[in-house]
Design a binder for these strands. Structure first.
Length: 895
DNA sequence: CCAGATGA
DNA sequence: TCATCTGG
């Protein structure tokens, strides 16, 4: 008997939704939305290429109710109706699938899942292997020997073993598990507080759902009560998640034989949708259907001849896409394992350098020397994805990456900073509709993960080659779009790209930390925490975990009966700081103890105990990572550790800055922009009063108080100044009366009065804000002074809260974003100055409006002047940019 | 308002 | 995942 060919079942409906949400909203020339059609069709094409099945079915949900709605009226009740933009793509997609020669099934009264279940059962009975392609995890219950579930968008194939790994139970128990946990997208309730972990544990213990129900009495705790209370619903949920595998279908499996594409219809449809690349394939290579096209050939370079040929090819390229493979995501620990290159679509090279199984004619050093001239050449433009990483890795390997011309991560970020992450996988999906091989599929994951040098060369080459080739494709897609936008492309060329080496250097440099200072503080805090716990337990009359907001709620509001001041978004009584403060003022003892405990525990857990763990064993310093494509406003962010939220506002907190030190012979210089965002607001709004106040060098909060309260400037008291400061602060966050009233502990109407008076006095600011709001609504984005575009994604949301949040963000964005642009310019300039000559200083940190440098003692004055001057002249505004710079042996003193 | 880290 | 707290 010959081996029977595989039946491929595609869950069209699940991919339709996912493609619709994951892909940009494409439209064809005549305005027909085509994004979801494109996504699903591409997915199907990839499946066809990969499996070349003779039997296929693309299955869709039928419109209208199903038998599940009769069982359970609430079924899918929380799901919003299908958006028009998606609905209008359904019929054209069906046409396209028909034209591709693929059997399509839409069966009234049942869902796509049930049709797939039925076909799977029939195929198994006929001894035919099955591949189910779906983004819907419910279908995992169908997996068995000979039945694989593939999630194309995640590039995962679930066999029984992987299902067990993912769900904690085998396929036969997946329906039981889903009944217990519920499925929010179908509005099927589960047992409250039971997640996948608990459900899997129970099912293992009692065999199956019936076992769990039988033994419900034995399960203790709150979840046990929840389980017993929900038994009826549980049985119903079980019925709903079970797939129906006896749907009546005409024609049997033979009806699913794949047909030939209808060329005429295909060409007509592809033209209509404007899918030009696909159309071109169709008209170019008439005979060979959709198969060819995005195939990638990766050449593994192992002989000297190949290496020479590669060098030659790179020498004649206008632009080289480049990627490094390494042993670690942490550049400071990463050893080179290989290089990949691409200079045209469909072709890539991989040069293995340190694979366990490699067998090259040349040594790694010989390969590096052969390529060094090209990699280091400033006149050979390169494009990469997140080149800061490669730059640091190469630096460690003694190679100085030159010619950093383009970075696809930054192209995407400056083109549209929000709405998507900017890692390669996200970009390939979003902009190319391509699903790239994940790192996990080549290197394994969890315990089984190996470092890249252990990955066989053959596997590594496919993966690495794809990275370089996709990077090139992304650049070819993104750059023409970005280049057309004058402002964003300027920000990209003049700020983001030049900043790459500056940040790379700062990360490599790191900052010195005095562990003894932190250890001493940790010990002090620990002692005080013990006292506080004891006192709190005494005050509560029982022991409890002070760090648990849940237990705290119980103690405060139920045991002690204190008044509930506010609720969290989820309806729990809030125990947030301001709430506790209010309770403390009312004379309760416990809230104060809690407040102090929380503050100190945070300090210890986040800073004094953790920072020393971050010291790198080789350098003895702390190396943060600056992220250049995360914050929507253009700011940097910092992680591992975050050095941009080191405490300063309280004395105990500020002490932590004592631990950030300069090594002997050097001092720390901390230079920060004073009131930079308000100054930018003065510039952008052109408000006369605000400009005048800055020009006169007045204390800006005092000046604001004088205006708002109608006083002479010298008559302003501390309280009035504090209120004015809160107003100024609030302004930059798009202030609402609600926010200000909370901040100042004032009634709403009084806060509103302050705001009104402010806008009466500062009419330029008022008009500017109104214009900004309108501009955001009209064009969907606002701009910084340097032309960076900041998109207000939800500005037209019908949800009031979301829309208003987007409006506030849009008002804040030009100021925060311009400040970010300015300090980036300053960093580039200061770094260039330091690198150009004998300036004995290093940039070590950036905290949004502050630069911290490590400076040789002897050169302090000249460096201070040089830094301040460059920061002040990073932009020419209608007001002067004021920079304050101080120095000292540690960050606290320097501030 | 924008971020990141922590603990339950 | 949520609440809380740190910074700007």
């Amino acid at each position: 008997m010959t081996k029977k060919s595989r039946l491929c079942l595609v869950d069209g409906s699940s991919y339709l939704y996912r493609a619709f949400h994951a892909l940009p909203s494409l439209t064809s020339g005549d305005g027909q939305p085509t994004g979801a059609i494109f996504g699903v069709a591409n997915m199907v094409r990839r499946m066809l290429e990969h499996y070349e099945p003779d039997y296929v079915a693309v299955v869709f949900d039928a419109p209208g109710k199903t038998f599940r709605h009769e069982t359970y009226a609430e079924y899918k009740a929380t799901r919003p109706p299908m958006p028009d933009e998606l609905r209008s793509q359904l019929e054209p997609l069906h046409e396209l699938i028909d034209a591709m020669g693929l059997p399509r099934l839409v069966i009234e009264g049942v869902e796509a899942d049930d049709v797939i279940a039925t076909l799977t059962r029939q195929a198994r009975e006929a001894g035919r292997p099955v591949l189910i392609s779906s983004g819907d995890k419910d279908l995992a219950q169908l997996v068995a020997d000979g039945v694989v579930l593939e999630d194309t968008m995640q590039d995962k194939q679930y066999d029984p073993g992987l299902v067990e790994e993912k769900f904690g139970v085998g396929p036969e128990l997946v329906a039981d598990l889903l009944a217990l946990t519920g499925d929010s997208s179908d509005n099927i309730p589960g047992v409250e507080k039971v997640g996948p972990k608990t459900a899997a544990k129970w099912l293992k213990q009692y065999g199956n759902l019936d076992g769990v129900i039988e033994h419900a009495d034995e399960i203790g705790g709150k979840v046990g009560d929840n389980l017993r209370g929900g038994l009826e619903q549980l049985k119903l949920s079980r019925e709903l998640v079970e797939l129906e595998d006896s749907v009546e279908l005409e024609g049997g499996l033979e009806a699913l034989k794949r047909g030939e594409p209808d060329r005429e219809r295909m060409i007509a449809l592809l033209k209509r949708f404007g899918f030009s690349t696909w159309l071109k394939q169709y008209t170019d290579d008439a005979g060979d259907s959709a198969a060819s096209g995005d195939e990638l050939v990766v050449e593994t370079v192992t002989t000297k001849r190949q290496l020479d040929a590669l060098v030659e090819a790179l020498q004649s390229a206008d632009l080289i896409a480049f990627d490094t493979e390494t042993t670690s995501l942490e550049p400071l620990d990463a050893d080179l394992v290989g290089f990949s290159f691409a200079v045209e679509a469909g072709k890539a090279w991989y040069v293995p350098l340190a694979h366990a199984d490699q067998d090259n004619e040349f040594s790694a050093d010989e390969a590096i020397e052969a390529l060094r001239g090209i990699i280091e050449d400033d006149d050979r433009p390169k494009v990469g994805q997140h080149l800061k990483y490669d730059l640091n890795v190469l630096e460690r390997a003694g190679i100085a990456l030159g010619g950093i011309e383009h970075d696809t991560m930054l192209e995407s970020y400056t083109y549209h900073s929000s709405g998507t992450r900017h890692d390669m996988d996200s970009l390939a999906t979003r902009y190319l509709g391509r699903q790239t091989t994940s790192y996990e599929t080549v290197a394994g994951k969890g315990k089984k993960q190996v470092t890249f040098d252990q990955v066989p060369v053959a596997t590594a080459a496919e993966y690495a080659g794809e990275d370089a080739e996709v990077t090139l494709a992304l650049h070819q897609h993104l750059w023409p779009k970005l280049e057309k936008l004058e402002g964003p492309s300027r920000v990209y060329r003049e700020l983001e790209i030049p900043l790459i080496p500056v940040l790379a250097r700062m990360e490599r440099t790191g900052v010195a930390l005095d562990v003894d200072v932190l250890a001493a503080q940790s010990a002090e805090i620990e002692k005080r925490l013990d006292e506080l716990v004891e006192a709190a337990h005494a005050a509560a009359g029982q022991a409890f975990n002070l760090g648990s907001p849940k237990q705290l709620q119980e103690i405060l509001f139920e045991q002690l009966g204190l008044p509930v001041k506010r609720k969290t978004p989820k309806g729990q009584p809030s125990t947030a700081e301001d709430v506790l403060q209010e309770l403390a003022v009312e004379g309760h003892e416990l809230p104060n103890l809690i407040l102090e405990h929380r503050g100190l525990a945070k300090l210890k857990n986040t800073y004094t105990d953790r920072l020393p763990e971050r010291i790198h064993p080789r350098t003895g310093r702390v190396h943060t990572h600056y992220h250049q494509a995360v914050a929507a406003t253009g700011r940097l962010s910092s992680t591992d550790p975050n050095l941009q939220n080191i405490p300063i506002r309280t004395p105990e907190g500020r002490r932590i800055r004592k631990a950030f030190v300069a090594p002997p012979g050097t001092v720390l210089l901390a230079a920060d922009y004073s009131q930079i965002e308000l100054r930018i607001m003065a510039h952008l709004s052109g408000d006369e009063r605000l400009l005048a106040a800055f020009a006169e060098g007045e204390d800006i909060h005092q000046a604001t108080a004088a205006e708002v309260f109608g006083l002479e400037i010298d008559a302003v008291d501390d309280n009035q100044r504090r209120a004015a400061k809160a107003i100024n602060f609030g302004l930059m966050y798009g202030m609402s009366a609600w926010g200000l009233s909370r901040q100042l502990e004032l009634p709403r109407n009084e806060a509103q009065e302050y705001i009104d008076r402010y806008f009466d006095r500062y009419t330029g600011v008022r008009d500017f804000m109104q214009e900004t709001r309108e501009r955001a609504r009209k064009q969907g984005y606002v701009e910084t002074l340097f032309g960076r575009r900041l998109w207000a994604d939800e500005i037209r949301s019908r949800n009031n809260q979301r829309r208003q949040a987007a409006e506030r963000a849009a008002i804040n964005a030009p100021m925060q974003g311009t400040a970010a642009d300015i300090i980036k310019r300053a960093m580039i300039d200061v770094d260039a100055w330091i690198q150009s000559g004998d300036v004995p200083a290093k940039l070590v940190m950036q905290v949004h409006d502050e630069l911290i440098l490590e400076v040789d003692e002897g050169a302090l004055e000249s460096v201070r002047e040089g830094v301040v001057d460059r920061m002040q002249h990073a932009a020419e505004l209608k007001v002067e940019l004021l920079v304050e710079a101080n120095s000292g042996p540690d960050w606290e003193t320097a501030h």
